[in-house]
């Protein structure tokens, strides 16, 4: 009996073994592509900043460029403004997108459909166009200025070329993705769960705090991680809308590379930016894993 059942079990196992190489082949192409386009440049960049050719021509280990970055006042200011912009954008995105997503989830009819299209609209606008639209509206002598002037009000202090310029642009740019992710999270909160909470006496604020937010924690995390990662290393919007100094890491790298013509330093800045993103990424992965374990 035992022999028979073992014998009949064996071919199944073999079948599974035989299938495995196909699976590997299927993922091989994207894995190789990722290795070539992402992993290799990272390794090479880290290598090129840590092992540099000395004056005598020998390759030696050095932390010079990093030491310079972290002791240079200007570089640190740029890093700070990047962190500030990212944090501010994340905060504003959360504050703006959560109400929009809640509204879209819990109301019915025509109006929410229009609001949704409006919220998704920035996704279809390239950032460069967005930047110039911003300048035409909020910039000096832009539409707002003209309107204010027409009714005899004083000029506004335009956010253009201040750190708030990129914040406004980046927030607008990231609203669609954030709203969509939050909305998908809210889709998992059933109407009955909410009605049950109201039934036992929870007011809207309490429903939001005790029932809805705990259930969409993961979505909030995903949404904010996505936008934080994108914003931290963004280029176009800070480049066009931001101040000349301090500037965000994206434009800073570009300028160091092109205008200052110091590729070594530019790569160092890139590695440091990447390092921060990795930290955000790890934090995100850890929280998601922990939430799923629950």
């Amino acid at each position: 009996m035992t022999a028979v059942s073992q014998a009949s079990a064996r071919p199944l196992d073999q079948g599974e073994n035989r299938r495995r190489p196909y699976g590997l082949l299927l993922v091989a192409a994207p894995v190789l592509l990722v290795a070539w386009l992402v992993i290799w440049p990272i390794v090479s960049a880290v290598g090129r900043t840590l092992f540099q050719r000395s004056d005598e021509g020998a390759i030696e280990f050095t932390l010079d460029t990093y030491l310079f970055f972290f002791s240079d006042r200007y570089s640190l200011d740029n890093l700070t403004v990047t962190l500030w912009t990212t944090g501010m954008c994340a905060l504003l995105l959360f504050v703006i997108c959560l109400p929009i997503a809640l509204y879209l989830r819990f109301s019915a009819g025509r109006l929410p459909a229009y609001v949704q299209s409006l919220a998704i609209f920035p996704m279809f606008v390239p950032s460069i166009i967005l930047s110039y639209a911003f300048i035409r509206v909020l910039g000096p002598n832009g539409m707002v200025d003209i309107l204010l002037n027409a009714v005899g009000l004083p000029k506004i202090r335009t956010p253009y070329l201040t750190p708030w310029g990129p914040v406004i642009g980046l927030v607008w740019d990231n609203i669609p993705l954030t709203v969509l992710i939050l909305l998908s999270g809210l889709g998992n909160v059933s109407n009955q769960a909410i009605e049950a909470a109201r039934d036992v006496g929870a007011r809207w604020g309490q429903v939001l705090w005790h029932i809805i937010l705990p259930r969409i924690g993961n979505s909030i995390l995903v949404a904010l991680s996505f936008s934080v990662l994108g914003i931290f290393s963004s280029f176009t919007l800070p480049y066009v809308l931001g101040p000349a100094a301090p500037e965000m890491m994206g434009p800073f790298m570009q300028r160091t590379f092109r205008d200052v013509n110091d590729p070594q330093m530019a790569i160092t800045q890139a590695v440091i930016t990447f390092g921060f993103c990795i930290v955000f990424g790890l934090f995100y992965v850890r929280s998601v894993a922990r939430n799923q374990g629950k």
Binding site: E195, A196, R198
Partner: peptide, 27 residues
């Protein structure tokens, strides 16, 4: 609903899955 002296039991999916049984009832 939160001000009415009524208690409703729904057909399904109305328990709060992020709370344990005690917390569901104690809420």
């Amino acid at each position: 609903p939160e001000k009415r002296p009524t208690g409703m039991v729904f057909q399904s999916h109305a328990l709060w899955s992020h709370m344990n049984v005690f917390k569901n009832i104690a809420f």
